[in-house]
């Protein structure tokens, strides 16, 4: 009986190990490198991240952590993926506390003017996160909110807990990224070269739009998160990354900024600092919502300097424990060079 029991345990362990690896391969996949954003975060050496910037594409496509490191030696991670629901912010901070324990959190509020109606955006977070109680709570919280504000049929909760049930069918569609080989994600950032021009004067005229209340749903998420921040013994700064959105969007962000400031938190409106960072509205945007790689480098450098100066984050450039940032920057520059030459060649043809 003992021998059989041992055999059974060995078989289960072997199966468990295989299952773990199979479920890592057959996991979430999209073209904005969401899986890599989380896997690179979890792979970071413990307690090496001083700051984490949370947000949607308003952070993912603006902040290049390795550029920030090169500029001032600060270690920041951009834990942001496109359309990241604001309601996920609390979960992400808890996850950071568990993994890295940074001293400051930056939270972008861009997504608070949009509604998350699609559970795909919830899955971008939960399906790529580690299996923790925190994750289970996040699934429950976000699903409950989705069901309440946007009632329709969603997958069963168990399918969020075990995302393998959804992605096992991807066996016919596997890519190198699924085997952990994502060469286009640089600590959350991915390169965009395209350009769209905007009239700076016109965009600036929208900055002082009269505050306008956002939706009840978003207001709830913001208040819930502020309540959570009150319990958090860490510095939390809210941000507004540069954009060329419509006036009514600025109006909503202005309302939220007032509300956040009333609760005693700082808001960095980077739209007003574009002159200082040297952002060119005709060259540095990819679309109204995002900067291209050139704009992102300018925003990153500016933010790095500001974080170093205002919060006194340390310079780790000569510390070998933080070498991964330097390596990542070299990879980033190499890939940027490749993409630029490919783009020039394409334009020539």
């Amino acid at each position: 009986m003992k021998r059989r029991f041992l055999k059974f345990i060995s078989f289960m362990v072997m199966t468990g190990i295989i299952f773990y690896h199979v479920s890592c391969v057959l996991g979430y996949y999209d073209n904005i490198h969401s899986a890599a954003v989380f896997s690179q975060f979890y792979d970071m050496p413990s307690k090496t991240v001083d700051a984490v910037w949370i947000g949607a594409s308003s952070v993912q496509e603006f902040i290049i952590p390795s550029v920030m490191f090169e500029e001032t030696g600060i270690t920041l991670y951009s834990l942001a993926v496109g359309n990241e629901p604001f309601m996920a912010s609390e979960f992400l901070i808890r996850e950071c506390e568990r993994e890295q324990n940074p001293s400051v959190y930056l939270v972008d509020i861009r997504q608070l003017a949009y509604t998350t109606q699609d559970d795909t955006y919830v899955r971008r977070i939960t399906d790529n996160s580690k299996w923790t109680v925190n994750r289970m709570k996040a699934i429950r919280y976000m699903l409950d909110n989705l069901k309440f504000y946007h009632p329709r049929e969603y997958d069963a909760e168990i399918d969020y807990i075990f995302p393998f049930t959804k992605y096992h069918t991807r066996w016919g569609d596997l890519k190198p990224e699924d085997f952990g080989k994502d060469d286009n994600c640089f600590f959350g950032y991915f390169i965009k070269l395209n350009r769209q021009s905007f009239n700076e004067t016109e965009v600036r005229s929208r900055f002082d739009a009269i505050p306008q209340e956002p939706s009840e749903e978003n207001l709830k998420y913001l208040n819930d998160f502020l309540d959570f921040c009150d319990t958090l013994d860490k510095k939390v700064i809210f941000t507004r990354t540069p954009n060329c959105l419509d006036e009514d969007m600025f109006a909503q962000y202005n309302y939220m900024q007032e509300l956040i400031e009333e609760r005693g938190y700082e808001v960095w409106d980077l739209n007003r600092d574009t002159g200082e960072m040297g952002l060119d509205y005709t060259e540095d945007f990819a679309d109204p919502m995002h900067t291209n790689v050139y704009g992102a480098q300018k925003v990153s450098k500016y933010a790095a300097v500001r974080l170093s100066k205002e919060l006194g984050l340390p310079d780790h450039r000569n510390d070998s424990r933080y070498a991964c940032y330097g390596t990542m920057q070299a990879k980033f520059l190499e890939r940027l060079g490749e993409m630029e030459s490919a783009s020039t060649q394409e334009a020539g043809n």
Binding site: K7, F11, M14, T15, I18, F19, V22, L26, D155, A156, D159, F164, T165, K166, H168, T169, W171
Partner: peptide, 25 residues
């Protein structure tokens, strides 16, 4: 022999888990 049996069972289990038509969708 045991390794062959285990190989069969594991292959069958993962064939069901991966190739089975179940789950959301």
């Amino acid at each position: 022999i045991l390794p062959f049996r285990w190989m069969l069972y594991t292959a069958l289990l993962f064939a069901v888990l991966i190739l089975g038509m179940y789950g959301p969708g």
